[in-house]
């Protein structure tokens, strides 16, 4: 019970201190809107292209929302030593890292709502399988957050967290089938696509929104869940190795 009081209050503190700050809320709104507008204008094929663009915009909104926030906040707290306070609290490391990542997961999932709400006004989304979209968004948020955690544990400065995040994020835009089908990539890049968790999340969304997934959805769910677990375990091991010397 005591550990859960700590768990819940870490989430609340992060929400208040970071995620619900006006600049982050406005960034969380503007960023997905900008992506939606950019790809909508670029496709030039009118409102009927929205369902095919929506999975990519959802995925990218979640990816950028989660990785930016978590990598920066954890690095910031590590830098000013307030993270030590959490490490010294009588709460297991696993629960502590889950608490630290939960805020980013909620923030990322909330980011996904922005393009969905916009698309609802512009296109017919009656054929979308929402019960598949919701867990997919959640898993993309979890995988992206744990990627952010992996980045945060690998760097020591806040600016390094930003640049190292981009090292992963920008290639993912092109390699994970968000807007460009993986089949159209050069053959030497294709294996790289399948090493990235977002590929499987985006494939689920493509299947759920306009029925154009390239792999069975069950396999997609299995693989992205596997990525989540692996990234979390690697990050935990790194925290144990690097921060508790």
């Amino acid at each position: 019970m005591r550990q859960w009081i700590a768990f819940w209050n870490i989430i609340l503190k992060d929400m208040r201190a970071y995620y619900l700050k006006p600049p982050n809320i406005s960034w969380g709104l503007i960023f997905p809107v900008a992506w939606t507008g950019m790809f909508f204008i670029k496709s030039g094929s009118g409102k009927e292209s929205i369902p095919s663009l929506l999975p990519g915009v959802i995925a990218i909104s979640v990816l950028f929302g989660t990785t930016s926030m978590l990598a920066v906040t954890v690095t910031f707290e590590k830098k000013n030593r307030s993270f030590e306070r959490l490490l010294l609290a009588p709460i297991s490391l696993e629960l502590l890292m889950l608490a630290k990542t939960s805020g980013a997961i909620f923030f990322g999932a909330a980011n996904a709502l922005v393009p969905v709400i916009l698309a609802m006004f512009l296109a017919d989304l009656s054929q979308v399988a929402w019960m598949t979209v919701l867990p997919a968004v959640f898993l993309i948020a979890v995988a992206s957050t744990f990627l952010g955690l992996f980045i945060a544990v690998s760097v020591s400065e806040v600016f390094e967290a930003q640049t190292f995040s981009n090292f992963f994020r920008f290639p993912m835009i092109f390699l994970c089938g968000l807007f460009f089908p993986i089949d159209s990539l050069p053959i030497f890049l294709k294996p790289l696509s399948y090493l990235l968790p977002l590929t499987y999340g985006a494939d689920i969304l493509h299947g759920a929104v306009h029925g154009k997934n390239i792999m069975p959805l069950g396999l997609d769910f299995l693989l992205i869940t596997g990525f989540c677990i692996a990234l979390f375990c690697i990050s935990l091991r790194n925290v144990n190795r690097k921060w508790i010397v």
Binding site: A6, I10, R16
Partner: peptide, 23 residues
Amino acid sequence: ESNLYPELSGFDNLCFCAALYGM
């Protein structure tokens, strides 16, 4: 070195630290 949270008030910092110990 003082390592509380600069963006929280003094009162909120104390409440948060108490919560970390399950109070």
